[in-house]
Design a protein around this nucleic acid. Sequence first.
DNA 1: TGTTGAAGTGTAACCGGTTACACCGCACCT
DNA 2: AGGTGCGGTGTAACCGGTTACACTTCAACA
Lengths: 333, 333
Amino acid sequence: MNKIGVSIRDVARETGLSTATISRVVNGGSKVSDETRQRVLEACARLDYLPNPAARALSTRRSKAVAAIIPTIEHSVFAKFIAAVERTLGERGYSLIMAIAKADEAEELAAARKLLGMGADALILSGLDHSDLLLEMLERRAVPYVFTSAWDDRSARPTIGYDNALLAERAMQHLADRGHRRVAVVHGPLAESDRTRSRRAGAASVGDRFEHLAFFEAPLDVAGGKACVGAALEDPRDFTAYLCSTDVLALGAYFACAEAGKRIPQDISVMGFDNLDWSRDIVPPLTTIDLPAVGMGEMVAQRIVAYLEDGAPLQNELLTAGIIERGSVADLT
Amino acid sequence: MNKIGVSIRDVARETGLSTATISRVVNGGSKVSDETRQRVLEACARLDYLPNPAARALSTRRSKAVAAIIPTIEHSVFAKFIAAVERTLGERGYSLIMAIAKADEAEELAAARKLLGMGADALILSGLDHSDLLLEMLERRAVPYVFTSAWDDRSARPTIGYDNALLAERAMQHLADRGHRRVAVVHGPLAESDRTRSRRAGAASVGDRFEHLAFFEAPLDVAGGKACVGAALEDPRDFTAYLCSTDVLALGAYFACAEAGKRIPQDISVMGFDNLDWSRDIVPPLTTIDLPAVGMGEMVAQRIVAYLEDGAPLQNELLTAGIIERGSVADLT
DNA sequence: TGTTGAAGTGTAACCGGTTACACCGCACCT
DNA sequence: AGGTGCGGTGTAACCGGTTACACTTCAACA
C-alpha cells in the first residue's frame, strides 16, 4: 500500500532512533522528550511517512474502520444519515466502509461477512429484523453493532432510532384531529422493511377513529407513489387524506393529484414522513414528520467510537421526532 | 479483529496440514489435491475461519479496498453513481471506503490522506480540478486514481465521464431550435465545481443564437432553484425558458412557477440535467439530459479493478448522454 | 556514598497471513 | 539402475507496525 516504501524503520534510520520511539511519537504516545519528538516529526514530514494501516491493524487488532449496511443511499434520508455517520466518524479518526444490501437477509449476511472480512471494527445495521445467522456470527466474534432507524423497548440489542409505530400513530391522530375520517395510508413493500411494518401497525392502531382506513402498498419511489395514489383517487371510499410513509411517496401523491386535477389541500390532503429538503419548498408545503436522520447518524457514530475507545456500553437510545405542520393538510372541522 | 481468534494456524492444526496449504486453498490457489482441499474447506467452515484482512494486506500489500471522495451523496446522481461503484466493486471482491468532501481542496487533500492511511488501493475523485499537492502525492506513492463526472480530451490523467460543456451546449441548441430566444441558465456555485463551470461555458458558447442569455448562480438545492427562478420570473428580460444545470434546481423551478401561477410549458419552459427518477413522473414530465451515472459508476469500478488485478492501464473514457424530450419545453416555432 | 525512582530509549517478540524455496515420492524415460 | 520432472506439501522468512520489558542516566534523598 505504501508504494513509496517509507516505513517506520526508514524514519528510525533517518533519525538515529529506534522504531519504538518513532511509534511512540507518531501515536502521540507518552515518554518522549520534546527534542526527540521534534526531530521525529520533522523526519516524518520530510520523508512523507504514512504508517502502514495493515501493519498497525495487525498488531493492534483494530482497523479504525466502521462498517454500515444500508438498504439504499438513493433516498435522501439514508443519504443524510450515512453522510452524518461518515462525517462524525471522520472527525474522530475513523473511516466508513459501506455496503448496500436490499432487505434480503441472505444478501445482508453476505455483506456483513465481506465487511468483517475487510476488518471492520463495528457494524451499523438498518432496522431490527436480521437473520439469526448474522446476529449469532456477530455475537460469536464479539463484533460491536447497533441497529438504527427503529426502536423497540423490548429489544435487548443496542438500538438507536425512533419509534416508527408511535410516529405513524401521531400522524394519524393529526389527521383525525383535523376531521379526516376517510384516510388511505400509502407505504412501501412490507416484506422489505420492519420499519414499514411498524409504521403501518402504528397507523392501524388508531383505526377506530376512522370511518374508512385503507392501506396501499407501493414501490418505494416517486413513480410508485404516483401510480398508487392515482389509482386510489378513483376509489369509491373517497379518501380525504393520504398518509404517505415516506416523503418520496408523498411527492408521487402530489404528481398524481396534479394529473387528476385535484388541488392540495382543498380537494385532497397529503401528509409525508421524513422531512426531506424539498418538502418545505413544494407547493403547497408538505406537512410531514421530521425524522432526525442527521442527529441519528451523529449519535450512532459517536456511540460506536465511544465504545471502541473507552468501552462505553452501547445502549438503546430513543430519538424524538415531531410533526411539522405546513400547508398540505386541510382542516375539515 | 477476528475476535474469536481462529487463525490460519488453528485450521492447520485441525487438519494436520501446514499454513501454506491452508492459504493455498483459501485463495483458490493451485497445486492442492482435491481431497486436501475438501478437508481444509470443511475445517474452515467448522471453525468459521475468516482470514485476518490486516495480515493478508500486510503481506500482499493489497487491501482490496477502493476509496472514493465525493462532494455529496445527498443528490441522487451521486448516490446512484456511488451505489453502482459499490455494487460493482463488491461483485469483484472489493470494498468501498467513502469520504465526503466539499469542493474545498484542503478538505479533499485531508480526506485523501485519511483514505490512503486506511489502506485504499486506489482513489476515485470527482471532477478535474484538484490540488497539486494531492496529485503529486498520488504520483509519488503510485496510487492509481481516476477522475469522474467530467471529461477533457487534453487531460493526461485518467478520466471517466461525460463532456459537460458539450451537453450543456446541446441543451441550449435544443432550446434555440424550439424558438427560445430569451433564456436563463440556473446553475450551482461556480467556485465549487469545475463541472458547473464547464456546463456554464458550454451554454455560453452558443450565446449568439439568443437575444438574451442570462446566468444565475444559486445554492445547489431545491430551495436555491426555487428562489432563483422565483426572482428571475420578475426579470424584465422575460425569459421564455430556464435551463437548470441540475434536475434538483429544475424541481425548484417548477415550484417557483407554481407559486407564481405560471404554467409549464405554456408560459415557461424548463429543462433539467441529470434525469433523476422523478423527472418522468413530475407534471409536466421534465425534459432533461440523461446522465449515465450508473454506467459511469460501473465503468469506473470495473476499470479500477482491471488495473489492480491485471494492470490494464487506466484510460480516458468518454460516456455519452442524450437529451430526453418530455413535456416541459414548449415549441415556439 | 549508596539507594531509589522516574524519564527516556532500545531490543525483540509478536500480530496472522503469503510465498519462495526446499523437499519428497512416484511415474516415466533411457 | 539412474536420471528427470512434476504434483503435492512443508519450512521459514517476511510484511511493518506495537509494546512488554530491559536498560541507562541522572536527580533526589537517606
